[in-house]
Design a protein around this nucleic acid. Sequence first.
DNA 1: ATCCCAAACGGACCGCGGTCCAGTTTTCTT
DNA 2: AAGAAAACTGGACCGCGGTCCGTTTGGGAT
Lengths: 228, 228
Amino acid sequence: MPAALPPFPKPQETVGPPELLQLGTGAAATGTEEDEPCLRADAARNRARLLEAAARLVAEHGAAGVTMEAVAAAASVGKGTVFRRFGDRTGLLMALLDHSEKNFQAALLGGPPPLGPGAPPVERLRAFGCAMLRRSIAELDLQLAAEPSAERRYTSAPRRFLRGHVALLLRQAVPDADSELLSHTLMAYLDAALVHHLTEQCGVPPTRLRAGWTDLVARVTRTEPPPA
Amino acid sequence: MPAALPPFPKPQETVGPPELLQLGTGAAATGTEEDEPCLRADAARNRARLLEAAARLVAEHGAAGVTMEAVAAAASVGKGTVFRRFGDRTGLLMALLDHSEKNFQAALLGGPPPLGPGAPPVERLRAFGCAMLRRSIAELDLQLAAEPSAERRYTSAPRRFLRGHVALLLRQAVPDADSELLSHTLMAYLDAALVHHLTEQCGVPPTRLRAGWTDLVARVTRTEPPPA
DNA sequence: ATCCCAAACGGACCGCGGTCCAGTTTTCTT
DNA sequence: AAGAAAACTGGACCGCGGTCCGTTTGGGAT
């Protein structure tokens, strides 16, 4: 057993509260905001530099070009620092996606209907899926690269939040169903890897993907599909 | 661009016919059969030794302990040989699952109903899911370890076959639906990583998983759930 | 201003997946 | 039987993710 308690306090990013949901102001672009709670001055500065460097690398060479060593070098920082701050490569990539994630969560919780509260649950589900598909398609390579290993795939905070949201809507729309299991099924349709496969490798147009979602929601909730 | 045509003819295993389905006799245990079409004598011998060694390592240290170098050493073979034969780690692990895969395919195509032909499509779908769940749970760690990277996850031959099967049944059961997209949704429910998460990390009992499948099939096909 | 230590740093280090290529073995041809 | 082409082999090699640990530094306490 190579077990020994890690010298790092490990991941600052993804732990947070064990339950879901934390919001932040959508302030500046990548890096320059003030959300990490208690972080030493130099640490905060390096964190910002790392995120900026990573974003630049993504823009230049795509997500595949984001090497931990490259990011460290581009930020003029030691490799260990990158891992200390973000835990692992996935953590770094997820941090890069954090802004859009926060915005999305805000829209779900407090934005205008049908995405936000105020619309009937089935309608909100439809809107949710279409928004997710749009977002996934827009950030495909990053989302794909940020996918955690199979064991951790379903335990990341953003994913849990989104699935919880779907489960909540399902509970309202179909109280008699196993909304936990059903929410996993719905989320799976929106999975980045699947979306990538269908759009890039099978040539399925986004409109058909969205139509498929609408139909799926209708079937799962045993409702009629919308007229349009 | 580091592009250069590989010195290997690359993967002999997973290519095969571009379309689905190839069957084999379920002869001996791991390794000693005669399926690879044209393989030099020593190559065939080494292939068998590698599979045997890999199976032993899985049995001893779990799928995580199956290191390419370890397999090569255990089979008294060079590391390059392992990659030449199986392409990559995923290929080796999938080869390890090949027997059960072949058996499963055979049961779907020619076995007794309701899994095989003869039963109404919805009933076959139900049986398919339950069988898949049972198989996934039985081989969880190996299935998990054999999962390809996100880009290739949906292009492996076994996966394509199974999904095609579901799409076929769906086409019969709900001719008006987009059975391609729906089949992806149904398959996603049976995904090894999800099953692992639900059973191992959330403590969902298999019976509930199967009930969830039955319910999902009923909703998707807009049929009544079975009485029992 | 000084001390002190938890926190942060950085780069040497490790293991593994994957590639390359010079040399060996098999099989085909005549 | 001999020779040549094709297929196969093995291990040195590379890059990257991730860890370790000796050193530095920020910032609260005195």
